Simulated scan of single mutants.
Amino acid sequence: PAADEEATAATNDSSGAETVSDGESPAPPPDSDTSPPPSSSFDREAVLSELRSLRVAELRTRLSALGIRWATMIDKDDLVRALADAMEEGANFSPSGALRPGEVADITDGELSLEVGGGASTPLLLDVYATWCGPCQMMAPQLKEAARELGSTVRVAKIDSDKYQTWASKLNVGGLPTVIVFDGGGKELQRVEGALMKDGLIELARSHI
């Protein structure tokens, strides 16, 4: 019926944020493309050995990709240690290895399964969005600014609800965007339906740190 279509459109296009009751920890969907979780321990010696086998140019390229300045690093071993430090920080920060402090990662269903699978030391702020959703696109730059300010205190990610419909269904997502906060063990703490500005996103995330 036309009335139902109008109600659905209003839900999807509304930019007003609505807080929804807390949820339970989601289990990975049965058809999720998961890979084995990474080891909880970071083998620094093995990483150092591997990095020392690389050329200086390769080390500099990898550091640049991580946004790390290497101009003042004179010795090759300085480059190796800096890259190893960054890799260790990333391994400790994100169970899937896809998330980095201060950035928004557009993740896959398999990566989300790992991120909510437990073992993280920080909360996860997840934006469930769609490419056709106007409020979702409006919130995207706000989410980037919020992630930059939250830094290493919160993992920030987004997932495409059309591309990964099983997860959207598992999370009972209705209106878009839906922002969900999980604790380090993967339990859902709070969700908000509708677009949020930077300050609202930061307040939501920090209330669960």
Score class of each variant (00 low, 15 high):
A147G: 09
V156T: 12
R69D: 14
S39C: 08
Y164L: 09
A147I: 10
I159R: 09
S14Y: 06
A168C: 09
A146F: 05
Y129V: 07
M197C: 01
M197R: 14
Q137H: 05
V192P: 00
V116S: 04
L66Q: 04
E188S: 13
S207N: 11
G186S: 05
E88K: 08
E45S: 14
F42G: 07
R100G: 01
A146I: 07
D78P: 00
A84L: 01
S64T: 13
D183R: 07
Q165M: 07
S169M: 05
N12L: 14
V104Q: 06
S207P: 03
D77S: 12
T166Q: 13
R81K: 09
P177L: 09
R44C: 07
A46R: 13
E50N: 11
V56F: 00
T153Q: 12
N12W: 10
S32H: 06
K187W: 00
D85R: 05
P29C: 13
F93R: 04
G16A: 13
R60W: 00
K76E: 09
I202S: 09
L196W: 11
A146E: 08
E58D: 15
R191S: 15
L176E: 09
S64W: 00
A105Q: 03
E88I: 02
S64H: 04
L196H: 12
L66W: 00
S21D: 15
P38M: 12
E45P: 01
G97R: 04
V192K: 12
A86F: 06
M73V: 09
P101M: 08
E145F: 03
S14N: 12
Y164T: 06
W132F: 07
K158M: 03
L114Q: 15
A27W: 03
A57C: 01
L150Y: 08
R62D: 09
S207W: 06
I74T: 10
Q190C: 03
S169G: 10
V20Y: 06
D106A: 15
S53L: 05
G23S: 14
D127K: 03
P1V: 02
G200F: 12
T34V: 15
V56W: 02
W70T: 13
E193D: 05
K163C: 03
S14W: 09
V156I: 10
E145S: 14
R69T: 04
Q165A: 15
V156R: 09
S14D: 07
P26V: 08
L54W: 06
Y129R: 12
D31A: 13
M87V: 01
D109S: 09
K170F: 02
E111G: 01
V173W: 05
R155H: 01
D22Y: 03
G90T: 10
F93Q: 05
Q137G: 00
A120D: 12
S15A: 15
D85M: 11
G16M: 10
